[in-house]
Every structure is written in C-alpha cells, then in structure tokens.
Amino acid sequence: MSTIPAPRVTIRGLRKSFGDQPVLHGVDLDVAVGAVVCLLGASGSGKSTILRCVNQLERPDGGTVHIDGDLIGFRPDRRRPDALRALAPRELRRQQADIGMVFQSFNLFPHLTVLQNVIEAPVAVRGRSVARARATALELLDQVGLADRADAYPRQLSGGQQQRVAIARALAMDPKVMLFDEPTSALDPELVADVLGVMRDLARAGMTMLVVTHELDFARHVADRVAFVDEGRIVEVGTPAEVLEHPQHPRARRFLAQLTGEPSTDVDTRAVAS
C-alpha cells in the first residue's frame, strides 16, 4: 500500500502509577486500521497496563488514548481548558463496548453456558434480541471451532477451548479493536496453537489487534509492527524483522536472547539469566 492507513488507536504520553510505584512513563503508540501490533517485554515492564489503560480498566494518570479520533475515557473539562474530566459511567461503557478484550485467565462466566457467555453482552449492552444474538454467537463459535460445545459450561472445556470462547465473546460485540493480554500464557503447550490459529485468522480477516504476548513466532509471522516495552517505556518499535532480528536496544537484545535461548552478544546475559 502506498498510502499510510489511518490510525485506529492512538496512544500519546500514557502515564500510570500504582500507589507510588510508577508503571508507565509516557507511552506513545499507533495501531493502524486492520493492523496487528505485538507488545513484547519482560514481565512487569508495563505491557498489560498499556492494554488496560486503552479500555480504561485502569484510569491513566496522564496522556490520552484515541480510537478513530474519539478520546477514550475523558472529555474536555468545561471550566479548565487545560484539563480533561473523566467520563460518566454510561458514556464510558459505550466506549468500552467497542473495545474487545481477551484476558490471560479467560475470565469466562463459570455459571453460564458457552452460548450464554457469548450472548450476554450483545443482549444486555447492544439491546439485541436473544434470537439474533444467538445466531451470531453460533456463527462465531463455529469460527473458533466450538459450535458443538455451545451448551457446555466453561469448566467442562480445556483451557484452549475456554480462551477461544472468550475470543468469540469479545467478537460478538463487533469491536473496533481487540486487545489480547497474554492470551496463551495460561495454556498447556499443546493448546497454544489452536488459540494462535484463531488469532491469525482474525488478523487475516482484517481485525485491528493489540497483542501482549511472549509468542515470538506469532509476532514474527502475524504482526505488522512489534513494540518492545521496558520499564514503562516503548524503547523500540518497528517491523518484526527489524525488532526481532536486529534489535537495537540492549534490553531488547538481552530479552530476545533469553526467550530464544540463543547466546547473546551481550556479555552479562549469563549473569542476569542465572
């Protein structure tokens, strides 16, 4: 493509602390329409917090998130032109409904069946009829390969199946962007491929995705851009080839070496790893 696609998600100067513990120190990131951006980094680097600030599960201390040009979670304050005021719950919910999220621990509703999990929000939030929500849900469950488990309870499914239901549940809201927070980290190794397969299909179908993951193969083959997060900052961002094959930042180099098990050019890797 010769033209630069419009950004769907625009993050500028995002800051967040938990108590007196700073987690994000000014994060800038763009996700183009239909693009897949993978966030890599050590645990505790702030990757998940970036996602959780995008859909306002955490309220940022500073900075802004825009989706399709709409400011998320805040509006200009009436009295102070230099300030933003947190949105009322109703307006915030309308924005959150357009942002899909998949959690590391699935967070399916255990007392509801698979089908009930998927249709709950379309019926309650979008006001769809149960019949219509049901039809859409069955299509989505078919898409993630679980059409035959619609009446099962989450506990009767494997972790990989639960995560695919969670993806279908998020898709049922027709989100503008999907956030994935380490979607395969809680899975047994043999179940990871099914979930990544569903995510790859989704990316090919043109879904805009922001993915926190440790799966380098997925980042390499599916992502349009990879961002490396270290201590609350994005220290490197580029194509998978640039970031994964030729990392410039020393922390990125060390982290990737640990993840792939290759000896690093960095001398003190061994000391850190042991």
């Binding site: 599960l57 719950p89 309308r94 357009d98 967070n107 509703f109 309650a124 939030v125 998020a170 809201m173």
Partner: peptide, 22 residues
C-alpha cells in the same frame, strides 16, 4: 474473582447488570 467484574466491564456492561447477572 475480580476478573469476573473486569470481563463484564470490558464488555461494556453496567455496574448493576454485572452485579445481578455475574
């Protein structure tokens, strides 16, 4: 589990609906 209410919030559900239904 706190993740239950979070999942509801992320889906845009209202606080009272999350309480009653989830």
């Amino acid at each position: 589990d706190g993740g239950q209410a979070e999942a509801g919030t992320a889906l845009g559900m209202s606080g009272s609906r999350i309480f009653r239904r989830i």
